[in-house]
Design a protein around this nucleic acid. Sequence first.
RNA 1: UGUCGGGUCGUCUAAUGGCAGGACAACGCCCUUUGGAGGCGUCUGUAGAGGUUCGAAUCCUCUCCCGACAGCCA
Length: 495
Amino acid sequence: MCNLRFDDTNPSKEEVEYVESIQQDVRWLGFDWDDRLFYASDYFEKLYGFAIRLIQKGKAYVCDLSADEIRQYRGTLTEPGKESPYRNRTVEENLDLFQRMRSGEFPDGSRTLRAKIDMASPNLNLRDPVMYRILRSTHHRTGDSWCIYPTYDWAHGQSDSIEGITHSICTLEFEIHRPLYDWFLNALEIHHPRQIEFARLNLTYTVMSKRKLLELVEEQRVNGWDDPRMPTISGLRRRGYTPESIRLFADRIGVSKNESMIDVALLEDCLRSDLNKRAARAMAVLHPLRVIIENYPDGSVEDLEAVNNPEDPAMGVRKVPFSKVIYIEHDDFRENPPKKYFRLSPGMEVRLRYAYIIKCVDVVKDEKSGEVVELRCTYDPETKSGSSQSGRKVKGTIHWVSAMHAIDAEVRLYDRLFSVEDPNGDDWKECINPHSVEILRKCKVEPSLAAAKPQDRFQFERLGYFCVDNDSKTNALVVNRAVTLRDTWSKIEKA
RNA sequence: UGUCGGGUCGUCUAAUGGCAGGACAACGCCCUUUGGAGGCGUCUGUAGAGGUUCGAAUCCUCUCCCGACAGCCA
Protein backbone atom coordinates (compact mmCIF):
# COMPACT_ATOMS: atom_id res chain seq x y z
CA MET A 1 0.00 0.00 0.00
CA CYS A 2 1.32 3.41 -0.82
CA ASN A 3 0.31 7.04 -0.43
CA LEU A 4 0.81 9.67 -3.03
CA ARG A 5 2.03 12.93 -1.54
CA PHE A 6 3.23 16.09 -3.19
CA ASP A 7 5.82 17.88 -1.13
CA ASP A 8 4.67 21.32 -2.18
CA THR A 9 6.80 23.28 0.24
CA ASN A 10 7.98 25.89 -2.21
CA PRO A 11 5.22 27.96 -3.85
CA SER A 12 7.63 29.73 -6.18
CA LYS A 13 8.28 26.53 -8.13
CA GLU A 14 5.71 25.91 -10.82
CA GLU A 15 4.44 22.72 -9.22
CA VAL A 16 0.85 23.17 -10.30
CA GLU A 17 1.38 22.16 -13.89
CA TYR A 18 3.06 18.93 -12.86
CA VAL A 19 0.58 17.77 -10.24
CA GLU A 20 -1.98 16.50 -12.69
CA SER A 21 0.43 14.78 -15.06
CA ILE A 22 2.31 13.08 -12.25
CA GLN A 23 -0.92 11.54 -11.03
CA GLN A 24 -1.83 10.47 -14.53
CA ASP A 25 1.60 8.88 -15.04
CA VAL A 26 1.62 7.03 -11.74
CA ARG A 27 -1.90 5.75 -12.30
CA TRP A 28 -1.05 4.66 -15.84
CA LEU A 29 1.88 2.70 -14.49
CA GLY A 30 -0.62 0.71 -12.48
CA PHE A 31 -0.57 2.18 -8.99
CA ASP A 32 -3.62 2.97 -6.95
CA TRP A 33 -3.54 5.20 -3.89
CA ASP A 34 -7.30 5.13 -3.34
CA ASP A 35 -8.18 8.25 -1.38
CA ARG A 36 -4.70 8.70 0.01
CA LEU A 37 -3.68 11.67 -2.08
CA PHE A 38 -1.86 14.12 0.17
CA TYR A 39 0.10 17.35 0.06
CA ALA A 40 2.73 18.56 2.47
CA SER A 41 0.68 21.76 2.49
CA ASP A 42 -2.09 19.78 4.23
CA TYR A 43 0.26 19.73 7.20
CA PHE A 44 1.41 23.35 7.28
CA GLU A 45 -0.47 24.05 10.51
CA LYS A 46 0.84 20.89 12.19
CA LEU A 47 4.35 21.62 11.01
CA TYR A 48 4.06 25.10 12.48
CA GLY A 49 3.04 23.52 15.77
CA PHE A 50 6.00 21.14 15.65
CA ALA A 51 8.29 24.11 15.08
CA ILE A 52 6.90 25.84 18.17
CA ARG A 53 7.62 22.68 20.14
CA LEU A 54 11.23 22.70 19.02
CA ILE A 55 11.55 26.38 19.97
CA GLN A 56 10.12 25.62 23.37
CA LYS A 57 12.66 22.85 23.84
CA GLY A 58 15.40 25.29 22.92
CA LYS A 59 16.12 23.35 19.72
CA ALA A 60 15.22 26.01 17.18
CA TYR A 61 15.79 29.74 16.89
CA VAL A 62 14.98 32.71 14.74
CA CYS A 63 18.04 33.92 12.84
CA ASP A 64 18.47 37.38 11.30
CA LEU A 65 21.40 36.46 9.09
CA SER A 66 21.00 36.99 5.35
CA ALA A 67 21.28 34.10 2.92
CA ASP A 68 24.81 35.17 2.08
CA GLU A 69 25.81 35.41 5.71
CA ILE A 70 24.35 32.00 6.48
CA ARG A 71 26.46 30.58 3.70
CA GLN A 72 29.58 32.21 5.08
CA TYR A 73 28.86 31.04 8.62
CA ARG A 74 28.27 27.48 7.43
CA GLY A 75 31.97 26.78 6.86
CA THR A 76 33.21 24.31 4.28
CA LEU A 77 33.39 20.57 3.75
CA THR A 78 36.63 20.41 5.73
CA GLU A 79 36.29 23.35 8.15
CA PRO A 80 33.66 23.78 10.84
CA GLY A 81 31.14 26.62 10.67
CA LYS A 82 30.61 29.53 13.07
CA GLU A 83 27.62 29.95 15.31
CA SER A 84 25.09 32.60 14.38
CA PRO A 85 25.03 35.62 16.75
CA TYR A 86 21.29 35.03 17.08
CA ARG A 87 21.69 31.43 18.12
CA ASN A 88 21.17 32.01 21.83
CA ARG A 89 18.02 34.10 21.88
CA THR A 90 15.62 33.21 24.65
CA VAL A 91 12.72 30.89 24.08
CA GLU A 92 10.31 33.79 24.64
CA GLU A 93 12.04 36.00 22.10
CA ASN A 94 12.12 33.16 19.53
CA LEU A 95 8.45 32.40 20.08
CA ASP A 96 7.56 36.06 19.64
CA LEU A 97 9.69 36.56 16.56
CA PHE A 98 8.48 33.35 14.92
CA GLN A 99 4.86 34.30 15.48
CA ARG A 100 5.55 37.70 13.95
CA MET A 101 7.29 36.03 10.97
CA ARG A 102 4.06 34.19 10.36
CA SER A 103 1.90 37.26 10.72
CA GLY A 104 3.88 39.06 8.06
CA GLU A 105 5.77 41.69 10.00
CA PHE A 106 9.11 41.09 8.28
CA PRO A 107 10.18 41.36 4.67
CA ASP A 108 10.97 38.33 2.50
CA GLY A 109 14.29 36.73 3.29
CA SER A 110 14.97 38.87 6.34
CA ARG A 111 14.71 36.11 8.91
CA THR A 112 14.63 32.33 9.10
CA LEU A 113 13.81 29.73 11.66
CA ARG A 114 16.76 27.40 12.09
CA ALA A 115 17.28 24.15 13.95
CA LYS A 116 19.87 24.47 16.70
CA ILE A 117 22.09 21.46 16.11
CA ASP A 118 25.86 21.66 15.63
CA MET A 119 27.80 24.16 13.55
CA ALA A 120 30.87 21.92 13.74
CA SER A 121 29.18 18.81 12.44
CA PRO A 122 31.07 17.08 9.63
CA ASN A 123 27.67 16.68 7.98
CA LEU A 124 26.76 20.09 6.58
CA ASN A 125 23.07 19.30 6.83
CA LEU A 126 23.38 19.40 10.59
CA ARG A 127 24.93 22.91 10.75
CA ASP A 128 21.75 24.64 11.90
CA PRO A 129 19.65 24.05 8.79
CA VAL A 130 16.87 26.45 7.83
CA MET A 131 13.37 25.24 8.68
CA TYR A 132 11.29 28.24 7.60
CA ARG A 133 11.86 31.08 5.18
CA ILE A 134 9.77 34.19 4.62
CA LEU A 135 8.36 34.08 1.12
CA ARG A 136 5.41 36.10 -0.13
CA SER A 137 4.15 33.95 -2.96
CA THR A 138 0.76 32.53 -3.74
CA HIS A 139 0.63 28.80 -3.09
CA HIS A 140 -1.43 26.62 -5.44
CA ARG A 141 -3.35 25.10 -2.54
CA THR A 142 -3.07 27.44 0.44
CA GLY A 143 -3.27 30.66 -1.54
CA ASP A 144 -1.98 33.64 0.43
CA SER A 145 -2.67 32.32 3.90
CA TRP A 146 1.03 31.78 4.60
CA CYS A 147 4.04 34.01 4.11
CA ILE A 148 6.44 31.57 5.71
CA TYR A 149 7.06 28.19 4.14
CA PRO A 150 8.76 25.09 5.54
CA THR A 151 11.82 23.78 3.74
CA TYR A 152 11.63 20.30 2.27
CA ASP A 153 14.13 18.99 4.79
CA TRP A 154 11.94 20.16 7.63
CA ALA A 155 8.63 19.08 6.13
CA HIS A 156 9.50 15.71 4.70
CA GLY A 157 10.19 13.50 7.71
CA GLN A 158 7.41 14.99 9.80
CA SER A 159 4.91 14.58 6.96
CA ASP A 160 5.85 10.91 6.69
CA SER A 161 5.46 10.60 10.43
CA ILE A 162 2.02 12.22 10.40
CA GLU A 163 0.90 9.73 7.77
CA GLY A 164 2.22 6.82 9.83
CA ILE A 165 4.57 5.77 7.05
CA THR A 166 6.58 2.66 7.96
CA HIS A 167 9.13 2.70 5.13
CA SER A 168 10.04 5.82 3.25
CA ILE A 169 12.16 5.09 0.23
CA CYS A 170 14.00 7.73 -1.70
CA THR A 171 17.04 8.24 -3.87
CA LEU A 172 20.66 8.20 -2.74
CA GLU A 173 21.19 11.95 -2.66
CA PHE A 174 19.04 12.11 0.47
CA GLU A 175 21.20 9.63 2.33
CA ILE A 176 23.28 12.37 3.88
CA HIS A 177 20.10 14.14 4.97
CA ARG A 178 18.87 11.16 6.95
CA PRO A 179 20.73 12.14 10.16
CA LEU A 180 18.85 15.44 10.02
CA TYR A 181 15.49 13.74 9.53
CA ASP A 182 16.34 11.45 12.43
CA TRP A 183 17.27 14.41 14.59
CA PHE A 184 13.95 16.17 13.97
CA LEU A 185 11.92 13.03 14.68
CA ASN A 186 13.86 12.26 17.83
CA ALA A 187 13.65 15.84 19.09
CA LEU A 188 9.90 15.84 18.54
CA GLU A 189 9.50 12.32 19.96
CA ILE A 190 7.00 11.30 17.31
CA HIS A 191 6.53 8.20 15.12
CA HIS A 192 9.79 7.48 13.35
CA PRO A 193 9.48 6.09 9.79
CA ARG A 194 12.45 4.19 8.43
CA GLN A 195 14.07 5.81 5.44
CA ILE A 196 15.84 3.61 2.91
CA GLU A 197 17.71 5.02 -0.03
CA PHE A 198 18.32 3.46 -3.43
CA ALA A 199 20.17 4.47 -6.57
CA ARG A 200 18.32 6.43 -9.18
CA LEU A 201 17.92 5.06 -12.66
CA ASN A 202 20.43 5.95 -15.33
CA LEU A 203 19.93 4.79 -18.88
CA THR A 204 22.38 4.73 -21.74
CA TYR A 205 21.89 7.11 -24.68
CA THR A 206 19.67 9.53 -22.77
CA VAL A 207 19.66 12.03 -19.93
CA MET A 208 17.56 11.67 -16.81
CA SER A 209 18.03 14.81 -14.77
CA LYS A 210 15.00 17.03 -14.54
CA ARG A 211 17.16 20.05 -15.27
CA LYS A 212 18.46 18.63 -18.55
CA LEU A 213 15.09 17.31 -19.62
CA LEU A 214 13.57 20.72 -18.98
CA GLU A 215 16.30 22.29 -21.08
CA LEU A 216 15.50 19.98 -23.99
CA VAL A 217 11.85 20.96 -23.74
CA GLU A 218 12.43 24.69 -23.34
CA GLU A 219 14.94 24.89 -26.16
CA GLN A 220 12.56 22.87 -28.33
CA ARG A 221 15.12 20.23 -29.09
CA VAL A 222 12.22 17.86 -28.51
CA ASN A 223 8.49 18.43 -28.89
CA GLY A 224 7.50 18.66 -25.25
CA TRP A 225 7.65 16.41 -22.23
CA ASP A 226 5.80 13.63 -24.03
CA ASP A 227 8.01 13.60 -27.10
CA PRO A 228 8.45 9.89 -27.88
CA ARG A 229 12.20 10.29 -27.55
CA MET A 230 11.97 11.52 -23.96
CA PRO A 231 12.65 9.03 -21.14
CA THR A 232 9.69 10.45 -19.24
CA ILE A 233 6.68 8.27 -18.49
CA SER A 234 4.56 10.35 -20.84
CA GLY A 235 7.24 10.09 -23.52
CA LEU A 236 7.53 6.34 -23.16
CA ARG A 237 3.75 6.06 -23.23
CA ARG A 238 3.48 8.03 -26.44
CA ARG A 239 6.35 6.08 -27.92
CA GLY A 240 4.37 2.89 -27.40
CA TYR A 241 5.72 1.46 -24.17
CA THR A 242 3.20 -0.44 -22.06
CA PRO A 243 2.92 -0.17 -18.27
CA GLU A 244 3.59 -3.91 -18.15
CA SER A 245 6.84 -3.56 -20.05
CA ILE A 246 8.02 -0.81 -17.73
CA ARG A 247 7.18 -2.86 -14.66
CA LEU A 248 8.97 -5.84 -16.16
CA PHE A 249 11.96 -3.59 -16.69
CA ALA A 250 11.80 -2.46 -13.06
CA ASP A 251 11.74 -6.10 -11.94
CA ARG A 252 14.66 -7.04 -14.10
CA ILE A 253 16.97 -4.22 -13.09
CA GLY A 254 16.23 -4.65 -9.40
CA VAL A 255 16.80 -2.15 -6.63
CA SER A 256 20.22 -1.43 -5.18
CA LYS A 257 22.49 1.30 -3.95
CA ASN A 258 25.00 0.78 -6.74
CA GLU A 259 25.11 3.75 -9.02
CA SER A 260 24.56 2.07 -12.29
CA MET A 261 24.06 2.82 -15.95
CA ILE A 262 21.55 0.50 -17.48
CA ASP A 263 21.79 -0.49 -21.11
CA VAL A 264 18.70 0.87 -22.89
CA ALA A 265 18.70 -2.43 -24.85
CA LEU A 266 17.32 -4.03 -21.71
CA LEU A 267 14.36 -1.64 -21.70
CA GLU A 268 13.78 -2.31 -25.37
CA ASP A 269 13.88 -6.03 -24.79
CA CYS A 270 11.20 -5.70 -22.11
CA LEU A 271 8.90 -3.97 -24.56
CA ARG A 272 9.53 -6.61 -27.21
CA SER A 273 8.83 -9.46 -24.86
CA ASP A 274 5.57 -7.88 -23.68
CA LEU A 275 4.32 -6.87 -27.12
CA ASN A 276 5.43 -10.08 -28.78
CA LYS A 277 2.81 -11.88 -26.76
CA ARG A 278 0.10 -9.25 -27.01
CA ALA A 279 0.39 -7.04 -30.06
CA ALA A 280 -1.67 -7.79 -33.17
CA ARG A 281 0.39 -8.27 -36.30
CA ALA A 282 -0.18 -6.21 -39.42
CA MET A 283 1.61 -5.56 -42.68
CA ALA A 284 2.95 -2.12 -43.46
CA VAL A 285 5.35 -0.95 -46.12
CA LEU A 286 7.50 1.97 -45.10
CA HIS A 287 9.38 2.57 -48.34
CA PRO A 288 6.99 1.32 -51.03
CA LEU A 289 8.21 -0.30 -54.23
CA ARG A 290 5.47 -1.02 -56.75
CA VAL A 291 5.22 -4.60 -57.97
CA ILE A 292 3.01 -5.70 -60.86
CA ILE A 293 2.20 -9.37 -60.98
CA GLU A 294 1.90 -9.87 -64.72
CA ASN A 295 0.11 -13.19 -64.78
CA TYR A 296 -2.39 -12.31 -62.07
CA PRO A 297 -5.86 -11.57 -63.52
CA ASP A 298 -6.76 -7.89 -63.88
CA GLY A 299 -9.36 -6.67 -61.45
CA SER A 300 -9.28 -9.83 -59.39
CA VAL A 301 -9.13 -9.57 -55.59
CA GLU A 302 -8.58 -12.38 -53.10
CA ASP A 303 -9.15 -12.13 -49.38
CA LEU A 304 -6.31 -14.05 -47.81
CA GLU A 305 -6.34 -15.26 -44.27
CA ALA A 306 -3.67 -13.93 -41.93
CA VAL A 307 -3.14 -14.79 -38.27
CA ASN A 308 -3.30 -11.90 -35.85
CA ASN A 309 -0.70 -13.25 -33.48
CA PRO A 310 1.20 -16.51 -33.92
CA GLU A 311 2.01 -16.43 -30.20
CA ASP A 312 -1.65 -16.37 -29.26
CA PRO A 313 -4.17 -18.28 -31.39
CA ALA A 314 -6.99 -16.76 -29.35
CA MET A 315 -6.36 -13.48 -31.13
CA GLY A 316 -7.82 -15.04 -34.25
CA VAL A 317 -7.40 -14.30 -37.90
CA ARG A 318 -8.23 -11.53 -40.35
CA LYS A 319 -8.59 -11.12 -44.09
CA VAL A 320 -6.00 -9.26 -46.12
CA PRO A 321 -6.83 -8.31 -49.72
CA PHE A 322 -4.48 -9.34 -52.50
CA SER A 323 -4.48 -8.06 -56.09
CA LYS A 324 -2.38 -7.57 -59.17
CA VAL A 325 -0.52 -4.50 -58.02
CA ILE A 326 1.16 -4.54 -54.64
CA TYR A 327 3.80 -2.64 -52.73
CA ILE A 328 6.78 -4.28 -51.14
CA GLU A 329 9.55 -2.79 -49.05
CA HIS A 330 12.16 -1.14 -51.24
CA ASP A 331 14.90 -2.80 -49.25
CA ASP A 332 13.39 -6.24 -49.92
CA PHE A 333 14.68 -6.01 -53.49
CA ARG A 334 18.31 -5.86 -54.54
CA GLU A 335 19.40 -5.79 -58.09
CA ASN A 336 22.74 -7.24 -57.07
CA PRO A 337 21.96 -9.32 -54.02
CA PRO A 338 24.76 -9.79 -51.51
CA LYS A 339 25.54 -13.27 -50.18
CA LYS A 340 22.85 -14.76 -47.98
CA TYR A 341 20.28 -12.23 -49.17
CA PHE A 342 17.05 -14.21 -49.10
CA ARG A 343 14.71 -11.63 -50.56
CA LEU A 344 13.79 -10.59 -54.10
CA SER A 345 16.27 -10.06 -56.86
CA PRO A 346 16.15 -10.45 -60.64
CA GLY A 347 15.19 -13.99 -61.62
CA MET A 348 14.78 -15.06 -58.01
CA GLU A 349 11.77 -16.18 -56.02
CA VAL A 350 10.38 -15.06 -52.71
CA ARG A 351 7.27 -15.88 -50.69
CA LEU A 352 4.73 -13.12 -50.11
CA ARG A 353 3.54 -13.55 -46.56
CA TYR A 354 0.14 -15.30 -46.46
CA ALA A 355 0.04 -15.25 -50.29
CA TYR A 356 2.02 -16.69 -53.19
CA ILE A 357 5.55 -17.26 -54.28
CA ILE A 358 6.54 -14.67 -56.86
CA LYS A 359 9.47 -14.42 -59.23
CA CYS A 360 11.04 -11.20 -60.42
CA VAL A 361 11.11 -11.13 -64.24
CA ASP A 362 11.82 -7.48 -64.98
CA VAL A 363 13.11 -4.35 -63.32
CA VAL A 364 11.83 -0.92 -64.32
CA LYS A 365 14.13 2.01 -63.63
CA ASP A 366 13.80 5.75 -63.77
CA GLU A 367 15.49 6.84 -66.99
CA LYS A 368 17.36 9.73 -65.46
CA SER A 369 18.29 8.57 -61.99
CA GLY A 370 18.59 4.88 -62.68
CA GLU A 371 16.61 4.24 -59.53
CA VAL A 372 14.45 1.12 -59.41
CA VAL A 373 10.84 2.32 -59.52
CA GLU A 374 8.85 -0.80 -60.33
CA LEU A 375 9.15 -4.56 -60.50
CA ARG A 376 7.48 -6.97 -62.87
CA CYS A 377 6.87 -10.36 -61.37
CA THR A 378 4.99 -13.56 -62.03
CA TYR A 379 3.28 -15.64 -59.40
CA ASP A 380 2.84 -19.36 -59.04
CA PRO A 381 -0.89 -20.00 -58.46
CA GLU A 382 -0.11 -23.39 -56.95
CA THR A 383 1.72 -21.88 -54.02
CA LYS A 384 -1.08 -20.06 -52.29
CA SER A 385 -0.59 -20.00 -48.57
CA GLY A 386 -2.34 -22.95 -46.98
CA SER A 387 -2.87 -24.86 -50.24
CA SER A 388 -1.55 -28.35 -51.03
CA GLN A 389 1.43 -27.00 -52.97
CA SER A 390 2.13 -24.30 -50.44
CA GLY A 391 4.90 -26.33 -48.87
CA ARG A 392 7.35 -25.42 -51.60
CA LYS A 393 10.37 -23.96 -49.94
CA VAL A 394 11.85 -20.61 -50.71
CA LYS A 395 14.42 -18.95 -48.55
CA GLY A 396 12.66 -15.70 -47.86
CA THR A 397 9.26 -14.35 -46.95
CA ILE A 398 8.47 -10.67 -47.31
CA HIS A 399 5.54 -8.48 -46.37
CA TRP A 400 3.42 -6.49 -48.80
CA VAL A 401 0.20 -4.51 -49.18
CA SER A 402 -2.26 -4.41 -52.04
CA ALA A 403 -1.90 -1.07 -53.83
CA MET A 404 -5.60 -0.45 -54.44
CA HIS A 405 -6.53 -1.33 -50.86
CA ALA A 406 -3.65 0.25 -48.98
CA ILE A 407 -4.13 3.07 -46.52
CA ASP A 408 -1.66 5.93 -46.49
CA ALA A 409 0.11 6.56 -43.25
CA GLU A 410 2.72 8.78 -41.72
CA VAL A 411 5.29 6.77 -39.83
CA ARG A 412 7.69 8.32 -37.37
CA LEU A 413 10.83 6.32 -36.82
CA TYR A 414 12.43 7.04 -33.49
CA ASP A 415 15.92 6.24 -32.47
CA ARG A 416 18.10 7.06 -29.45
CA LEU A 417 18.06 10.72 -28.50
CA PHE A 418 21.83 10.82 -28.03
CA SER A 419 24.56 9.26 -30.06
CA VAL A 420 26.82 8.53 -27.10
CA GLU A 421 26.18 6.19 -24.19
CA ASP A 422 26.66 8.72 -21.46
CA PRO A 423 25.89 12.26 -22.63
CA ASN A 424 27.37 14.11 -19.70
CA GLY A 425 29.82 16.92 -19.42
CA ASP A 426 29.31 20.46 -20.61
CA ASP A 427 28.88 19.53 -24.25
CA TRP A 428 26.05 17.08 -23.66
CA LYS A 429 23.72 18.87 -26.04
CA GLU A 430 26.20 18.44 -28.86
CA CYS A 431 25.76 14.70 -28.48
CA ILE A 432 22.14 14.80 -29.55
CA ASN A 433 21.56 12.27 -32.29
CA PRO A 434 20.62 14.25 -35.42
CA HIS A 435 18.73 11.21 -36.71
CA SER A 436 16.71 10.56 -33.57
CA VAL A 437 13.52 10.93 -35.59
CA GLU A 438 12.81 10.28 -39.24
CA ILE A 439 9.36 11.06 -40.58
CA LEU A 440 8.05 8.99 -43.47
CA ARG A 441 4.93 10.37 -45.10
CA LYS A 442 4.22 7.94 -47.92
CA CYS A 443 3.87 4.66 -46.11
CA LYS A 444 1.29 2.07 -47.08
CA VAL A 445 -0.49 -0.05 -44.51
CA GLU A 446 -3.05 -2.81 -44.78
CA PRO A 447 -6.72 -1.74 -44.70
CA SER A 448 -7.47 -3.36 -41.33
CA LEU A 449 -5.67 -0.43 -39.70
CA ALA A 450 -8.36 2.00 -40.79
CA ALA A 451 -10.02 1.81 -37.41
CA ALA A 452 -6.84 2.19 -35.35
CA LYS A 453 -7.00 4.70 -32.53
CA PRO A 454 -4.28 6.57 -30.63
CA GLN A 455 -2.31 4.30 -28.30
CA ASP A 456 -3.23 1.14 -30.27
CA ARG A 457 -0.12 -0.95 -30.68
CA PHE A 458 0.84 -3.32 -33.49
CA GLN A 459 3.69 -5.36 -34.69
CA PHE A 460 4.33 -4.47 -38.29
CA GLU A 461 5.68 -7.77 -39.50
CA ARG A 462 9.46 -7.86 -39.96
CA LEU A 463 9.75 -4.20 -38.94
CA GLY A 464 9.01 -3.62 -35.30
CA TYR A 465 6.41 -2.51 -32.80
CA PHE A 466 4.41 0.58 -33.60
CA CYS A 467 1.96 2.72 -31.70
CA VAL A 468 -0.72 5.01 -33.10
CA ASP A 469 0.22 8.58 -32.18
CA ASN A 470 -2.04 11.16 -30.57
CA ASP A 471 -1.69 13.24 -33.72
CA SER A 472 -3.45 10.53 -35.69
CA LYS A 473 -6.84 11.38 -37.24
CA THR A 474 -9.48 9.32 -38.96
CA ASN A 475 -8.16 9.81 -42.46
CA ALA A 476 -4.61 10.65 -41.53
CA LEU A 477 -3.03 7.77 -39.69
CA VAL A 478 0.16 8.57 -37.76
CA VAL A 479 2.18 5.81 -36.10
CA ASN A 480 5.33 5.84 -34.03
CA ARG A 481 7.93 3.14 -34.09
CA ALA A 482 8.47 2.15 -30.48
CA VAL A 483 11.22 -0.36 -31.11
CA THR A 484 12.47 -2.44 -34.00
CA LEU A 485 12.36 -6.20 -34.09
CA ARG A 486 15.63 -7.99 -33.51
CA ASP A 487 17.30 -7.77 -36.86
CA THR A 488 19.63 -10.67 -37.59
CA TRP A 489 20.04 -9.67 -41.22
CA SER A 490 21.41 -6.24 -40.43
CA LYS A 491 24.13 -7.92 -38.41
CA ILE A 492 24.95 -10.33 -41.22
CA GLU A 493 25.11 -7.49 -43.67
CA LYS A 494 27.33 -5.40 -41.46
CA ALA A 495 29.77 -8.23 -40.96
C1' U B 1 42.35 16.24 1.62
C1' G B 2 35.96 16.16 6.15
C1' U B 3 31.37 13.01 6.49
C1' C B 4 28.34 9.40 4.38
C1' G B 5 27.66 5.70 0.67
C1' G B 6 29.26 2.22 -3.10
C1' G B 7 32.80 -1.46 -5.85
C1' U B 8 30.55 -9.42 -8.42
C1' C B 9 30.81 -11.23 -16.33
C1' G B 10 30.67 -5.80 -21.49
C1' U B 11 25.75 -4.00 -18.65
C1' C B 12 22.32 -4.90 -14.61
C1' U B 13 21.62 -8.20 -10.65
C1' A B 14 21.65 -13.02 -7.28
C1' A B 15 24.48 -15.88 -3.88
C1' U B 16 24.03 -13.37 4.22
C1' G B 17 30.60 -18.49 5.86
C1' G B 18 29.40 -24.04 1.88
C1' C B 19 29.10 -25.70 -6.33
C1' A B 20 29.87 -17.68 -8.16
C1' G B 21 23.86 -18.28 -10.78
C1' G B 22 20.19 -15.43 -13.93
C1' A B 23 18.82 -11.59 -17.45
C1' C B 24 20.38 -8.25 -21.31
C1' A B 25 24.41 -7.72 -24.87
C1' A B 26 27.86 -10.43 -28.07
C1' C B 27 29.04 -14.86 -30.86
C1' G B 28 27.76 -19.79 -33.04
C1' C B 29 24.20 -23.62 -34.33
C1' C B 30 19.02 -25.63 -34.89
C1' C B 31 14.17 -24.35 -36.28
C1' U B 32 11.01 -20.98 -38.87
C1' U B 33 5.53 -18.93 -44.48
C1' U B 34 8.03 -12.61 -39.78
C1' G B 35 16.09 -13.02 -41.14
C1' G B 36 10.38 -12.18 -35.71
C1' A B 37 9.34 -15.69 -31.87
C1' G B 38 11.40 -20.20 -29.93
C1' G B 39 15.36 -23.96 -28.76
C1' C B 40 20.54 -25.34 -27.85
C1' G B 41 25.41 -23.83 -26.96
C1' U B 42 29.82 -20.50 -26.24
C1' C B 43 32.26 -16.31 -24.08
C1' U B 44 33.43 -13.21 -19.99
C1' G B 45 33.30 -11.70 -13.33
C1' U B 46 34.13 -11.34 -6.93
C1' A B 47 39.10 -3.84 -7.31
C1' G B 48 44.16 -5.11 -4.78
C1' A B 49 47.19 -7.08 -0.66
C1' G B 50 47.26 -9.50 3.86
C1' G B 51 44.56 -12.15 7.82
C1' U B 52 40.64 -15.43 10.43
C1' U B 53 38.55 -20.32 8.87
C1' C B 54 38.20 -27.21 7.12
C1' G B 55 36.00 -23.57 3.80
C1' A B 56 35.60 -16.25 2.28
C1' A B 57 32.27 -12.42 -2.89
C1' U B 58 30.49 -12.70 2.22
C1' C B 59 34.04 -11.69 8.54
C1' C B 60 38.75 -8.51 10.06
C1' U B 61 42.97 -5.03 8.62
C1' C B 62 45.25 -1.91 5.15
C1' U B 63 45.29 0.11 0.16
C1' C B 64 42.97 1.70 -4.45
C1' C B 65 38.83 3.49 -7.35
C1' C B 66 33.88 5.83 -7.91
C1' G B 67 29.70 8.84 -6.15
C1' A B 68 26.84 12.32 -2.95
C1' C B 69 27.04 16.71 0.31
C1' A B 70 28.95 23.67 1.42
C1' G B 71 20.17 26.21 -1.74
C1' C B 72 16.20 30.29 2.40
C1' C B 73 15.62 23.70 -4.27
C1' A B 74 13.47 18.99 -3.98
